[in-house]
Design a protein around this nucleic acid. Structure first.
Lengths: 229, 229
DNA sequence: CAGGGCAACCGTACTTAGTACGGCCGGAGC
DNA sequence: GCTCCGGCCGTACTAAGTACGGTTGCCCTG
């Protein structure tokens, strides 16, 4: 029975709204958006909530649950396709939205791979996507193909976008220069050609490849759908 | 000046081959293969080399360099396409090889996103791929499209394969059952249809979607190539 | 209005990582 | 033999996740 020593701010701070799982996850997302996944620690999260580390554990079971949770929050941001509306347009809208969301939360892609327990928003998203394809006339097996192909393209594209060593003009310099140095030796001739004649030209943006790929994929699916009738 | 206290095994162990960067990276890969990225720590790595933690630092600058290094080792395992040979066959070979390698080293996909300084094997791989497309008659811009599309598909597919919550028969159970429980409520009707009528049927393997998607992508590129002539 | 119960929050401390810093040691050359 | 050096390691500091056991204010209940 220690003497309480009741000191400052035990009662002081003017009634902060109590935490809950929702607020914890939103704060976690904000921290990750601000400084990347590496900056998201229980301690930094607690600090951003104006609370001590262990308090967080009253609302989530552990860091893994936080990671699962914010992945689901990310999926919740992606536009849902609507079954019944023209499938191709819905898939384009969904794909663009997904890319935009994943670019906005670049840490999410890394988590996609490691999380195997989808949350409700994720399931709802998948359900709507599958439903839209089915309503658009896709037989079940072709729907599975389409779903796998579209998501592969979307996720893979975002990964590459996030890892791009050769970016647009400015920021590129640092890494690019270093790489280009090794190029001088004459190894990687095709890479050099591609870089100098295309990628490093003003006006080129890797992101533009998204629409090209998306169109190609959707064309392939449309053809498959037509052939399945 | 502490009394040396020279104890056991200071001189004992019969001349172990000295470490070098190569051996360190190979050991790191082996550790990651065995227990995942989380198991790869400087300490576990040192232990697997029969050495103390700080010794590792004489051969690599830090953990980041190790991560960059093993990603490059992974790329080195992927079959190189050969410029001059028929492009489509080479792309199929490359894609299958890449998928096999990434499935063999599942941790690599997570690293793809975070590493932005490609190593020599990675550059060589990209160079060969671009070279094969160019030699196959692809104009520079179309080569960029093809490269982005193919790699997006490959990486994205592997991500999904790694994260599959709904897998084949056995292991599925745990996660699947839990999810299916929530399904009973009648939410996610399309997901239920897809699962029960297709994915959970014997004979279905998500991995099979790879060939479908690859064919679709290559068909689209072949058509684009034909159209560019 | 006193007392009890509970949910929210926190103090402390243990464990595991990465890694800075400064040795020690045994073989190569003088 | 002596010196130098490269490879290796002992020690220790910092950061992070989290177990455990309080403490406290608020809301009932009587």
């Amino acid at each position: 029975m220690v003497v309480p020593d009741m000191d400052e701010q035990t009662i002081r701070p003017g009634r902060r709204a109590p935490l809950d799982r929702e607020r914890v996850l939103r704060a976690a997302m904000a921290v990750a958006d601000g400084g990347g996944l590496a900056d998201l620690t229980i301690r930094s999260l607690a600090a951003s909530l104006g609370v001590k580390p262990m308090s967080v554990y009253h609302h989530v079971a552990g860091k893994d649950e936080i990671l699962d949770g914010i992945v689901d929050l990310v999926f919740a941001e992606i536009d849902l396709p609507e079954p019944g509306r023209e499938w191709r347009g819905e898939m384009v809208r969904r794909a663009r939205s997904a890319r935009a969301v994943l670019v906005r939360h670049p840490w999410a892609v890394a988590l996609l791979e490691s999380r195997t327990s989808p949350g409700p928003a994720t399931l709802r998203h998948h359900d709507a996507t599958i439903g839209t394809l089915r309503a658009g006339g896709f037989p079940v097996p072709l729907t599975a193909h389409a779903f796998a192909l579209l998501d592969s393209f979307i996720y893979g594209f975002v990964i590459q976008e996030a890892a791009q060593p050769l970016r647009a003009p400015e920021e590129t310099t640092a890494a690019t220069e270093a790489i280009m140095a090794g190029f001088a030796a004459g190894e990687y001739p095709h890479l050099v050609e591609m870089a100098t004649e295309h990628i490093l030209r003003p006006g080129y943006a890797f992101g533009d490849e998204f629409e090209y790929g998306l169109t190609a994929v959707l064309d392939a699916l449309a053809a498959a759908l037509a052939g399945s009738r």
